[in-house]
């Protein structure tokens, strides 16, 4: 464990908590893409199956349980409790175009052809594009509430910090996983446009307006 990875995990946790609090306090999931949240739940489910039979550390186990519980909790709030406030008209990204290629790629490019490894690889590929429905929805609605942009900033920062973690581990000549690194770079690049707008607009108190 290193400071970059710890900050990355905490940024990830912060993002999820910001989202849960936003939905819970405002009792509304307006502006939030249920499809992206659905993809994140798939990512965590496919990746954390080893939860039940490999123990890496207490931290690892606790965080996996928290991520699984909060992602399903978010789905519950969006699709059941506050379903009336879900903006399905603007949440229209075709997620089958993300899931199917991720499955195909995981079957073609992986470290080991075992069920667990293929599922892990699938979750890595899917996570790299899971935010697209949310970014698409923000561009369709043309704007995002500031709390939503804080959520996106924390979520985008998590994988950017993981890239610093991989650089740090490379200097320590620790074992690295090329699949996770390439996917993590793609994932972070998808946020660049948003990062620019967040840093130049939201932090100056302006509303986040994405060019439609």
């Amino acid at each position: 464990m290193n400071i970059f990875r710890l900050l990355g995990d905490l940024s990830h946790l912060l993002a999820i908590i910001i989202l849960l609090l936003k939905i819970w306090n405002s009792r509304s999931c307006a502006g939030i893409s249920g499809r992206s949240q659905f993809l994140f739940a798939i990512v965590f489910t496919a990746r954390y199956l080893d939860l039940f039979f490999t123990f890496i550390s207490l931290y690892n186990t606790v965080m996996k349980i928290v991520f699984l519980a909060t992602s399903y909790g978010t789905l519950y709030l969006m699709y059941i409790k506050f379903k009336a406030t879900y903006d399905s008209n603007h949440d229209t990204f075709r997620i089958e175009f993300l899931i199917l290629p991720a499955i195909a790629l995981a079957l073609l490019i992986n470290e080991e052809f075992t069920v667990i490894e293929i599922l892990w690889t699938f979750s890595i590929y899917l996570e790299s594009v899971a935010i697209l429905p949310q970014l698409f929805m923000v561009s369709k609605t043309g704007e995002a509430e500031s709390i939503t942009s804080h959520y996106l900033f924390a979520l985008g920062s998590y994988r950017a910090l993981y890239i610093l973690n991989w650089i740090y581990r490379w200097f320590l000549t620790e074992k690295l996983n090329a699949i996770a690194i390439v996917a993590g770079i793609v994932q972070t690049i998808l946020y660049c446009d948003f990062f620019y707008l967040y840093l130049t607009k939201v932090l100056k108190g302006k509303k986040l307006q994405l060019p439609a």
Partner: peptide, 10 residues
């Protein structure tokens, strides 16, 4: 035989 992939990262 690739080393058993132990994914220690979240």
């Amino acid at each position: 035989e690739p080393a058993e992939e132990d994914h220690d990262e979240l």
